[in-house]
């Protein structure tokens, strides 16, 4: 490679060195390099520019880039840390780090809180909870009467809002998830433990030892 920047650095905006990302996340250097293969695949699915656009994440998560999905939108918003409308490689790896089986549970709980705090007020409000339930029902083509939805939302909100002030704060959320650990089941991706097996092509070209 000599004194020239690597091809990846030149070609991919926002590319960050795997050694740097590995030092900040639960991933090894090899795993970060494998994630780069996944990132490349996702980032060229609609617009081939080395960045993940909202439609590309939407396509990967819901198989339909045109059907808006509230939750895929929220995932995109949290991954897009710089808030510039695209997910860069570093943002992708750092965000996925939270989903690693070895990532701290507190990080997973914090991530879900931010995910469900739709309007970023620092609280999960009843209205937001209802909006998410309605979105989920719509996505799943499930029909429940408004009365039933209200009952589900009321009961859940009552259980989580320990202080009874009409909103769920981060402390209450932590307590609620501790009592209902299944709520963060989707925050752990076993795939991330063997990502190098899923995307082995980099192994032949890696130059850095873990």
């Amino acid at each position: 490679m000599g004194c020239y920047p690597s091809k990846r650095t030149k070609e991919t905006p926002g590319y960050e060195e795997p050694t740097v990302l590995a030092a900040e996340t639960p991933f090894t250097v090899s795993e970060v390099e494998a994630l780069y293969e996944l990132f490349k695949k996702l980032s060229r699915s609609v617009i081939d520019d080395g960045l993940i656009h909202k439609e590309e994440l939407q396509l990967a998560l819901s198989r339909n880039k045109n059907r808006r999905n509230l939750f895929a939108d929220r995932i995109f918003d949290l991954f897009d840390v710089k808030r510039n409308g695209v997910i860069e490689f570093g943002e992708f790896v750092r965000s996925l780090g939270v989903f690693h089986p070895n990532a701290p549970v507190e990080d997973k709980i914090h991530f879900t809180f931010r995910l469900y705090d739709l309007r970023q007020t620092g609280f999960i409000e009843r209205e937001e909870l209802k909006e998410m339930v309605v979105a989920l029902l719509h996505e799943s083509d499930l029909l429940l009467s408004d009365d039933v939805v209200e009952t589900i939302v009321d009961k859940t909100f009552c259980d989580a809002d320990l202080k009874g002030d009409g909103k769920i704060d981060p402390e209450e959320w932590m307590e609620f998830v501790s009592k209902n650990p299944s709520l963060i089941k989707n925050m752990t991706l076993p795939y991330l433990m063997d990502i190098t097996l899923a995307f082995p092509s980099f192994v032949l070209s890696t130059e850095v030892e873990d």
Binding site: L38, L61, F71, I75, L136, E139, V148, I152, T156
Partner: peptide, 26 residues
């Protein structure tokens, strides 16, 4: 199914949009 006893957050967590394992499916 007994919807009134459901935990709303549990219901939400089943969303396909939150199922990031689909990123790894080929």
């Amino acid at each position: 199914m007994a919807p009134v006893t459901m935990n709303a957050f549990e219901l939400i967590s089943t969303s396909q949009g939150l199922n990031l394992s689909s990123l790894f499916e080929k």
